[in-house]
Design a protein around this nucleic acid. Structure first.
Lengths: 244, 244
DNA sequence: GCAAAAGTGTTAATGCTACACCCATGT
DNA sequence: ACATGGGTGTAGCATTAACACTTTTGC
């Protein structure tokens, strides 16, 4: 039998379809450590466990639109850096029915969380403890405060691990780090972001020069205030050509 | 209203669900140029245009399983390097109904195509003309022979562009190039792959050393045959630890 | 012996790291 | 004045690119 002809005659409505959801890995760097936004589940399955904010994709809604809607409705944030990460499609990843989930990756500066976390008691920022596993896969542990690792629902631990690896991988060749900083920032703050994500100490002069030579930074002429020592210059991110 | 509670009460069966398909970007390097496997469509929509091989995801089948099934059934290949690329979810990407497509990226050495292409007349290997657009996005042109660019169905041009960029991006830090070569190969053949994909000329001694220092290559002790000049040593790819 | 491509050694350039030092501000 | 972190200059190191050269095969 001819496969192409079969496909053309195939009526998708006649077959059972999976549900499609979007899950959001909303990350930040808080007090020198990577963190994720989680919601506590109060129903089965995985009642009591922590999950990534997510929701079903509407029939008239693109995946990107769904991700932005969930960012606003479920994570109570607006206007973050958002990019698609990976689609998880194991048959039994949700014990209820077949659900395919498109994971999206979002970044925000730490100060954008404080208000939202107060008004939404089901949300929490969990600190990530990343076993420095290099390239290889595997999930990641999340903790709140200095407590024990949280139990994560579904395959959300895998999603988190993948998000962390993507963040590390893209950090050095894209302007992704600037999504974790306010509009104006010092070079020290930028370096802190790098050190938190890569989990290493970096050499200060080398880091400064590498960043400045890249042409992404624009000095504002303004200075930091409130420090009891020499105030640092504030920089702004000047996007590369291709970026939005 | 509480969003989390809403989600838990939400019955996915009560809402209209999208269909989910997998599309396969099966690439190779043929005669020093990147190429993709395409099928010619004979029905609406996009009748007469060329499309990537694809199919619906079964309800009891994971995404990866669907990709491998399509590799065998539609592309008539077996056992390629396959990895997930991106999920395309624009509402109107298919004029018939809402279809979300998970694009998979597959690689095979050129010699694996000859038999399959003869037995399947709807398939063709199209050469890619890649406008060297660096990081930035956009579709890619495909040609058969030296002809005009082919008209591609749906958003398959976008998929192709993304696949090409992924290939370029991963080429130098992963063993992805070896999926495009037979089990034993010469260093010149490996360099030809690099030059075809990156669309540049590379320095021979530097390339040799870079590859050998990486520890991925294992000399077999055997030599190329049939050349009218000094025969080159044949190497084998020794996978890095983490890889399957 | 000659042509053609494989393979190797040496040098130059580049980028990164480390260290030492100076600068500006609040207390 | 001094403590503290911001910012800059210079030297050393390692990696990479470029070129010239030698080696090995078939004709």
């Amino acid at each position: 039998m001819d496969e192409v002809a079969f496909l053309e005659n195939y009526d998708p409505a006649a077959y059972e379809r999976p549900s499609v959801t979007v899950d959001l890995i909303l990350m930040s760097v808080v007090d020198g450590a990577p963190a994720v936004l989680l919601t506590r589940r109060d129903r089965h399955p995985f009642a009591g466990a922590w999950a990534l904010p997510g929701g079903f994709v509407g029939i008239g809604e693109s995946l990107d639109e769904a991700a932005h809607r969930i960012l606003i409705e479920k994570a109570r944030m607006s206007d973050a850096y958002v990019e698609q990460l990976y689609t998880f499609g194991a048959v039994d990843r949700d014990p209820r029915t077949r659900i395919i989930s498109v994971a999206y990756f979002a970044l925000l500066p730490a100060d954008r969380f404080t208000a939202a976390l107060k008004s939404a008691p089901e949300l929490a920022l969990a600190e990530l403890t990343v076993p420095w596993s290099g390239e290889t896969g595997g999930p990641v542990e999340a903790c709140i405060g200095n407590g024990n690792p949280l139990q994560l629902a579904f395959d959300h631990g895998e999603m988190l691990g993948l998000a962390m690896r993507r963040l590390r991988g893209k950090l050095d060749y894209s302007g992704i780090a600037f999504a974790l900083l306010p509009e104006r920032f010092t070079l020290r703050a930028l370096q802190d972001i790098y050190e938190a994500i890569l989990d290493t100490k970096l050499n200060k002069p080398a880091f400064r020069r590498r960043m400045l030579d890249r042409g992404w930074l624009e000095a504002t002429g303004e200075r930091e205030t409130g420090a009891s020592f020499r105030p640092a210059e504030l920089y702004r991110y000047r996007k590369a050509e291709g970026e939005r």
